[in-house]
Design a protein around this nucleic acid. Structure first.
Length: 563
DNA sequence: ATCTGCTGCGCG
DNA sequence: AAAGCGCGCAGCAGAT
């Protein structure tokens, strides 16, 4: 059973209340909608939730945060905006005028994206003005919500059973989890973080001046280069100064500097390292993003074309290892940090139904398995070759190892090779469950139709670039959907097992890694859930296949202690 | 003063 | 040793 929710427009243009419309499994009305006041909405949802409906709404981002603030959570939903986004690119859904209209406004691979269907402009996080009225969600009216829902149901039902509908369910579950993670926040110890900053940078300086340690390194660098006026924050200046000192580098990238032998290199590298800490995760970052012991970024479900999550604000998906020690559980709790070991190559084995690669994955360490089967036991080589195959490496050691890999795993390699060929020819590819990649942009197509030699060279370059994109897309997108199903299964099992407060919660998700915040005495149970959820995800997606997706889980009292 | 693009580096 | 995929963000540099 479904319940569609929408705001009831008022004559003044705002919202006069909320409508709850029950629907049957085909999206047909079951009776008249309940219309409730804003104040009564959360209670009405909580009441209806006892019947375990699947909530249908324009977007979880619009509706769910207020419910969570009112202490109401829901089990399942259908997020029309996210689903529309998937359907706009999916080759496996049943075509219709509605789908055509979605496609017409969908993004292409040049990165342009029209305003998202149904979504209000995103509010800047942490910038709620004191003058803002509290905003009621004002999405499309209930008729539109039900209408779009029926269109989406029809489009999904045309696909191979158990694929696109699973993807849609997982994406919507992901939207609930993202909202819950934002609501709950990631536990973050300001005092620990500040200690770390002071130990490495010195005391917090006044705005606009360098911390003492950074200033000391800057002076050391100026001395070593004989350039007392050098601004170490300017790559151009630094590059010129290095050249004058006889250090021949093309850029000031750290890996290039590391190969040079000169007294200026060490302070420069140290300066860059500390400067990065200061600007990306220094005191200003703490002020902006950590409040009441929680880091609250915004997660953007489906924000990456491959279906991975993106984030907005605070660099949530790039928390440096350097500061992870500030991530500490509440009193009486621990973190369970779990990651899917070598997720992408395992997914590739599944995509290609490659028994040899599956056999290599049988142990714990897939790369070691590959190494033992065909790379003379050299794990580093095996890993390099595999990554090269998935990313489209053409040169270097990685490129050289490719033929060896192709001989060992022809079926798996054929998957990425044919994806690359399709992309180079301007075609599209899709994940196992049916998430399609964006089509080639009009600009890209125009470039392919060129004639002059110089233009042809650039067209070929663009074609190869798109080939690398589609090559990687099939793996990355299929891995992302596995991770999403895993996450959804974890949430479901945590909810089902839940002993009274305090509950175990999902507090962080990073592509192939999940962090649970767990009351210490429930750690063992939560660990079991992580494993069972992984098995369930594999089975949901691929059915009964002889490929293992192994989970590495550690129980820690600081995020820094994971890995 | 505000924008856009580039560089560099963090994460997977 | 330093290419091949996907992101976000800060600060500089140059343009408006």
């Amino acid at each position: 059973m479904y319940i569609a929710v929408a705001s009831v427009p008022s004559s003044r243009g705002g919202s006069a209340g909320m409508a709850l419309q029950q629907l049957d499994s085909e999206g047909r009305h079951l009776g008249e909608p309940d219309v409730v006041d804003h104040d009564a909405f959360a209670a009405a949802v909580a009441e209806a939730e006892h019947r375990r409906p699947r909530w249908v709404w324009s977007s979880t981002r619009l509706w769910y945060p207020d419910l969570l603030s009112a202490g109401v959570s829901v089990d399942r939903c259908w997020d029309l905006a996210l689903t529309g986004n998937i359907l706009a690119h999916s080759p496996s859904c049943r075509p219709s005028p509605y789908i055509e209209s979605l496609r017409a406004t969908a993004r292409t691979d040049d990165g342009t994206e029209p305003p998202r269907l149904l979504l209000p402009p995103p509010a800047a996080p942490n910038q709620h003005s004191l003058f803002d009225e509290p905003q009621e969600p004002v999405g499309p009216p209930v008729g539109d919500v039900v209408g779009q829902f029926r269109e989406q149901l029809a489009a999904v039902s045309g696909a191979e059973p158990g694929r696109l509908n699973l993807l849609v369910a997982a994406e919507s579950a992901g939207s609930l989890i993202a909202a819950e993670m934002e609501h709950w926040g990631l536990p973050w110890r300001r005092d620990v973080h500040e200690d770390l900053l002071e130990r490495t940078l010195g005391p917090r300086p006044p705005e606009g001046s360098r911390p003492t340690e950074l200033e000391r390194l800057a002076q050391e660098l100026r001395t070593a280069l004989g350039n007392p006026a050098l601004n170490p924050d300017s790559p151009q200046e630094v590059l010129r100064a290095l050249h004058r000192a006889g250090i021949e580098v093309r850029t000031t990238r750290s890996w290039e500097l590391e190969r040079q032998a000169h007294p200026a290199i060490e302070p420069l590298l140290a300066y860059k390292k500390l400067s990065r800490l200061l600007t990306a995760n220094g005191w200003n970052w703490l002020d902006a993003w950590v409040r009441d012991g929680r880091f609250r970024p915004e997660y953007v479900v489906g924000g990456v074309v491959s279906g991975r999550w993106a984030s907005r604000g605070g660099g949530a998906l790039q928390i440096p290892r350097q500061v992870r020690d500030a991530v500490r559980p509440d009193e009486g709790h621990v973190f369970l940090v779990a990651d899917a070991a070598q997720l992408e190559p395992r997914v590739l084995a599944a995509l290609g139904q490659d028994a040899a690669l599956a056999a290599a994955a049988r142990g714990q360490d897939l790369y070691q398995g590959i190494a033992d089967q065909g790379f003379g036991g050299d794990r580093a080589q095996a890993k390099l070759a595999m990554l090269g195959a998935m990313y489209g490496a053409t040169s270097g050691e990685s490129g050289r190892l490719m033929p060896q890999l192709t001989r060992a795993y022809p079926r798996a390699i054929a998957v990425v090779e044919s994806a690359a060929r399709a992309g180079e020819a301007g075609g599209g590819v899709s994940s196992y469950l049916g998430r399609g990649c964006p089509p080639a942009s009009e600009e890209w197509r125009a470039r392919q139709r060129t004639t002059t030699a110089e233009e042809q060279r650039r067209a070929d370059g663009a074609a190869r670039a798109r080939g690398r994109f589609t090559r990687n897309f099939v793996v990355q997108a299929s891995a992302a959907e596995w991770a999403l199903c895993w996450l959804a299964e974890i949430r479901r099992r945590l909810a089902a097992s839940s002993i009274p407060e305090p509950r175990s919660r999902i507090v962080f998700f990073l592509h192939d890694e999940v962090v649970l915040h767990v009351p210490a005495q429930q750690a063992a149970e939560a660990g079991t859930i992580l494993d069972l959820a992984a098995r369930a995800a594999t089975r949901l997606i691929y059915g009964d296949i002889p490929i293992e997706f192994s989970i590495n889980t550690v129980t820690v009292s600081s995020y820094a202690d994971a890995k």
